[in-house]
Design a protein around this nucleic acid. Structure first.
Length: 422
RNA sequence: GGAGAGGUGCCUGAGUGGUUUAAAGGGAUAGUCUUGAAAACUAUUGUAUCUUAACGGGUACCCAGGGUUCGAAUCCCUGCCUCUCCGCCA
């Protein structure tokens, strides 16, 4: 969430920021509530002060009669303060939920735009393959090899699930080993995190703006939710902690299964495993000094590109416009892989700098050596590989005339194979 | 799943209704002493929020949320977490 003090002092900028993000929010109501809330707080505080004082007087008063007199007077004060307390609760609740809905402000450098149509391609990298035969889509190839099975998955689990089999199942583990080898060199600590987390953690990561989001699988009985990305499990790991400046940045690379209900995407990408309810992903996450979060973001983006370059998959980098950032992000890039048969780029990676937005709700701070004060850290996340989609990109870009799939050079030593399906 | 014990500051740990402004010890930091170090001694050792031009002052915080009371770290209820024993289990 944002700092109410910041909102107070930068009202115009916050209104502008919300507009840029296409978020409609009643800032005037927020100010109204803020003022009323502080007013009530001051009154309540002075009641408490009075009560504390009376407590001491009761102890000091020797005579029983004197004591009873003070107690009687305090009962009256109590009644008044109780009434005020009730009022405060109502105001405070509305205030908090409204404050929570104010999104993180986009950085100045982020281009303005309404939605994903106005994202800007900032570079295209890699050579698109030139086939001397009619290329097939990944699903046809994989089904011919009996290595992706969505039909039986439908029988077992319903729509939007899939089985990976044989060498394509092994390809997943080759990819994971390849990633961890690459990322540990940059100081990313490998993690296998929980995929079920408490609701409040999801909320404090900024993913529950609207209570009971339809996008999330909920385990009602246990008060837990399934993560849509391991970012939601890694971010709260250090909640309520204070970092030493020397320990920043703290980098993690987390492997986990991700669960998404895909509500509202009915009819979209219904074929194959591009958009499924369950997929595996390795996610980079960094807890970082605010002074260096911009460089850290570039590093994460550079890692995403490095992984793509080593696999030799053509891709483009998108600068996400203000309207498509989502609530917690201040700046965001997507990487999209080239899919020859679709004849377009499809999103495989996304990296965001959430500045102090998540850190504030999660109360994660560090001591600034210069000022001696506690300040909020910055959090950043980025996809290393969304396994399913990368497998799609590999199959499509590395397919051969005979229906087999060449294994990218960088993966050959992990898979112990140069070709799949031969 | 059954039975029991707990959750206090950076750490250990005392505190069972009213100067708790949280004892004591450890650690850390600074000072004295010393050629230097150690030891010893001394001092310091929160966070949030409101208010003030500032000095300062008020309030809250002993896992979380409720309750009892004039007054709660302390009593009661609920939840979360940890530990011990038993059962089950990859």
């Amino acid at each position: 969430m944002l700092d109410i003090k910041y909102i107070r002092e930068n009202k115009e900028a916050v209104i502008k920021g919300c507009q840029k993000k296409q978020v409609k929010i009643d800032i005037d109501r927020l100010f109204e509530l803020d003022e009323k809330r502080r007013e009530l707080m001051t009154s309540l505080d002075s009641f408490s002060a009075e009560k504390n004082k009376a407590g001491k007087e009761i102890v000091d008063a020797g005579e029983e009669k004197e004591k009873q007199k003070i107690i009687a007077a305090m009962k009256e004060v109590d009644e008044k303060s109780d009434k005020l307390q009730q009022e405060f609760k109502i105001i405070d609740q509305e205030f908090s939920s409204l404050l929570f809905k104010v999104p993180n402000m986009p950085l100045d450098e982020v281009p303005e735009g309404k939605d994903d149509k106005e994202n800007i391609s900032i570079r295209e990298v890699g050579k698109k393959p030139n086939f001397d035969f009619e290329p097939k889509d990944y699903l046809t190839i994989a089904e011919n090899l009996d290595m992706i099975d969505v039909k039986r998955a439908a029988k077992v689990s319903g729509a939007r699930f899939g089985y990976l089999k044989g060498d394509i199942a092994l390809l997943e583990f080759a990819l994971i080993n390849f990633i961890f080898n690459t990322l540990t060199k940059e100081g990313f600590v490998p993690v296998v995190p929980p995929v079920m987390i408490k609701k409040e953690n999801m909320k404090d990561m900024g993913y529950f703006e609207r209570e009971d989001s339809d996008e999330v699988y909920q385990l009602e009985k246990d008060g837990l939710v399934l993560v849509g990305t391991s970012e939601q499990s890694i971010g709260p790991m250090h909640r309520d902690e204070i970092f030493e400046e020397k320990d920043l940045p703290k980098r993690y690379a987390a492997f986990s299964t991700c669960f998404r209900r895909e509500a509202g995407s009915y009819g979209k990408d219904t074929k194959g495993i591009l958009r499924v309810h369950q997929f595996d992903k390795v996610e980079m996450f960094s807890f970082c000094n605010p002074a260096s979060s911009k460089e850290e973001h570039q590093l994460i983006l550079a890692m995403e590109e490095k992984l793509m370059q080593e696999l030799e998959i053509p891709y483009q980098v998108l600068q996400i416009c203000t309207g498509d950032l989502g609530a917690p992000a201040a700046v965001k890039y997507d990487v999209e892989a080239w899919l020859p048969t679709a004849n377009c780029y499809r999103e495989t990676h996304s990296t965001s700098n959430c500045t102090d937005f998540q850190a504030r709700s999660l109360n994660m701070r560090y001591r600034n050596k210069e000022t001696g004060k506690l300040e909020f850290i910055h959090t950043l996340n980025g996809t290393a590989f969304a396994i399913g989609r990368i497998i799609i990109a590999i199959i499509e870009n590395y397919q051969q005339k005979d229906g087999s799939i060449k294994v990218p050079k960088a993966l050959q030593k992990y898979l112990n194979k140069e070709v799949i399906g031969k």
